[in-house]
Design a protein around this nucleic acid. Structure first.
Lengths: 362, 362
DNA sequence: GGCAGAAATGAAAGCGCTGTCAATCGCCCT
DNA sequence: AGGGCGATTGACAGCGCTTTCATTTCTGCC
């Protein structure tokens, strides 16, 4: 619009130094500067140091956009996460970065807040940056999202969840199985009135819910009044509210399985508030095994998932494809499983080892 | 390297559609396609719909890199956060996005995990994308970071903290004052042995610590054995460990002020574990006022900060500068303050209003 | 009915950088 | 001493797009 833009000048009226500026200053050609930066070994020591001086004195920072455009290598990987509120995606993102950044790849992260529409937008946005790969959380993309990802032609990794029909690569766990396993664990502890609290915004939580329902049915247990759900993203206070709902319907509920640890913590607090003893009166079991599960009183039993491993695998698979010019990792789908961390909130006051023995005896 | 790259072909062997492909398909010139996308009103309805069809059938997604390069408008704002583990930066980022995204600006977020070196790297990386502005958390950038930001020529907003010597714009609060206020609040409640637990990784936490020390001194109180600190980033379990340290040194500690809510929660759990009553035996006060503070039992008193407001202000200030071609917001530095949310963990079982009255009487 | 002026479209140039290929230089070997 | 080789450096073109300016086409109006 204004002439300022035409001449590449920013709002402060300064123009950022370009490769050519550096070249002029160092008395070499632009290509040589480019090489001194990208492939230092190709440039003589003399020129290299002269160029380095020029770079410093001009505060030159290469224009990644121009470099990416010219080389058709963007060194960008797009990552989509549905949330940043809890520690779950922090571990995961950290693992991805720890693999990709040292390889010179920049990770662009977009948070879509559990919204499919935001996810579609985010995918389009990220693809506009021509990433060399995409990592998306979950397997519940809309048809449009799937189509965009597929036709982008870049490797796509779906994480956190497993599916029979992956877009491309897939690593995750079966949340239905995990939900059912939680129920069976509580059942094995002697519980019959097992409640489930959940926040429906998360597709994985919906799958855990389905697993809960399936397991309850298989065990011949009624779920009447035992399920409380909210359409909003979860927080700790919601745990108390949902548990209160269940309590009103089924006063003698004996165990609560929640779709995540926030709700479990909220439930624990609600029990404290009401003078309900945990685990004597009500057992509580969360999901994700966040750091506060070990710290709370009683410590919270939770289903632990391999967040870091999923991030690492996704990133390494991408690296292999990019570096190996198209070789795909095999298998292209991996199921990582989960484990139940037994703690005092479900009555396991003994050590984990003793607990295993106890179960073996049972 | 391989010829695949030279011809702009990705690992799957497909080549993504370009503007020219769309133009050819629609039987128009490339410029017209560009206009149909950026300025639809400049193109006749007939051509526009023909172009839209071509776009759809080719799955065309504009190359943001090329577009940014050609227009010298990247529509990118770089944001640096020191952490994603807790809810603090989630609110803040959400606020920034809510202002910037509707304005067509993409926010690139980099998490530097409380590391100055990572921050320097992140700043260089982001500047490589030629953002139209930068938002950084805190005012503790290294000299190199400051220099890069200044010489970039783009507007820079430092948030979360205040400083006499801002790089450019600044919005935040005085954490020293906030820390001191917390101490004075506890003092007013009758506490004398006031402990402080802190994680030193966070510069704002260090400032709150300084405020604590200053206030304690002003009140003529000893801090001997009352401070426990860890160099690592905080988590809930750390709260229990640090509190235990203090307890060993000063068994009759009467109040604990922590640098954040995670440590406060950990302290609360440790009290529960040891049978220490809160607030009767020990009062607990956190910082940030995260969602679990209202849910816990007892609810945690905490210092509430204007995270969203800081994000919103930063984003709006940037928008004004970008849109207004250089006009700066005034004032260029804003202090947002804080407020103490009184809850049961510091003995305030009555309503906040009654509490105010009680203090007025005292 | 013909011309001013607006509206719609296109041609050309270039954003900042990198890949390719060509040119130059010095040095070793026979 | 001449040829050849590797090591350096540079010229040129072009990545995909937008901006500018020129051209064409279509109005309306005296």
């Amino acid at each position: 619009m204004s002439e300022a833009q035409h001449s590449g000048v920013n709002v402060q009226g300064k123009r950022r130094a370009t490769l050519s500026d550096v070249a002029r200053r160092a008395g070499v050609s632009p290509v040589t500067v480019s090489r001194a930066i990208r492939h230092p070994e190709m440039v003589s020591e003399l020129l290299r140091s002269r160029i380095e001086d020029a770079v410093r004195s001009l505060n030159y920072i290469p224009n990644h956009l121009a470099s990416a455009l010219a080389s058709t290598r963007t060194h960008i990987v797009g990552v989509i996460v549905p949330s940043l509120t809890n520690g779950v995606f922090d571990d995961y993102l950290g693992a991805i970065q720890d693999v990709l950044n040292p390889a010179g790849i920049q990770v662009l992260v977009l948070n879509v807040r559990y919204s499919e529409i935001e996810e579609e937008r985010a995918i389009a946005t990220l693809l506009g940056y021509h990433p060399e790969a995409m990592i998306v959380a979950g397997t519940d993309q809309t048809e449009r999202s799937r189509h965009m990802l597929k036709s982008s032609g870049v490797p796509v990794v779906q994480t956190m969840d497993v599916t029979d029909d992956p877009i491309d690569l897939n690593i995750g766990l079966d949340h239905g199985v995990a939900g059912a396993a939680a129920v069976r664990y509580l059942h094995a502890q002697g519980h019959r009135r097992i409640a489930h609290l959940t926040a429906r915004a998360d597709p994985r939580a919906r799958r855990r819910h389905a697993g809960y329902l399936r397991a309850m049915e298989e065990l011949g247990l009624s779920t009447r009044g035992l399920v409380a759900a909210s359409p909003r993203p979860s927080d700790v206070a919601m745990g108390g509210a949902l548990f209160s709902e269940v309590l009103a319907a089924v006063p003698d509920v004996s165990a609560v399985f929640t779709c995540n640890d926030d709700l479990a913590l909220g439930t624990l607090f609600e029990c404290q508030r009401r003078g309900i003893r945990v685990p004597e009166d009500v057992a509580i079991m969360g999901f994700n095994d966040l750091d506060f599960c070990v710290a709370s009183v009683p410590a919270l039993t939770s289903v632990s998932t391999e967040r870091q491993k999923m991030g690492t695998w996704a990133a390494e698979a991408i690296l292999e494809i990019i570096r190996g010019s198209g070789r795909r990792p095999s298998p292209a789908s991996v199921e990582v499983g989960f484990s139940i961390k037994e703690r005092a909130s479900t009555g396991v006051v003994r050590t984990a080892r003793a607990a295993r023995k106890a179960r073996a005896r049972a």
